[in-house]
Amino acid sequence: MSLTEQQVKALSFQARLQLTAEEIVSFTAQLNKILQYVAIIQEVSVDDLEPTIYGVSLTNIWREDRVRLSLEREAVLANAPEQENFCFKVPKILEED
């Protein structure tokens, strides 16, 4: 499989990364090189194996439903690029998801 510049552009939008025209060209070449390399995994047949998703094989790790102290509001907003009325402030939202 290989990627077209159009597809890389679409990926960059999905990942919310603004790319320049030159970057799209160079990233397309680089990604295709990586794809070529990782294609090695297609050699091996592993359909009979369950995917390993986690770093440990534990299950049912949870906590009881108890309230713990939240952060002080100053701490919540400590790193906010912009704030107003104790809220994080962002430029207008055009799309509604």
Partner: peptide, 26 residues
């Protein structure tokens, strides 16, 4: 529930903005 899905912050309705927040849910 008393607390949120993935952290211990309260699920109380109508609290003051950004007071029921912790590193996880932020």
């Amino acid at each position: 529930t008393e607390s949120k899905l993935c952290c211990g912050c309260s699920t109380k309705f109508n609290a003051e903005v950004n007071t029921l927040v912790c590193p996880v849910c932020l």
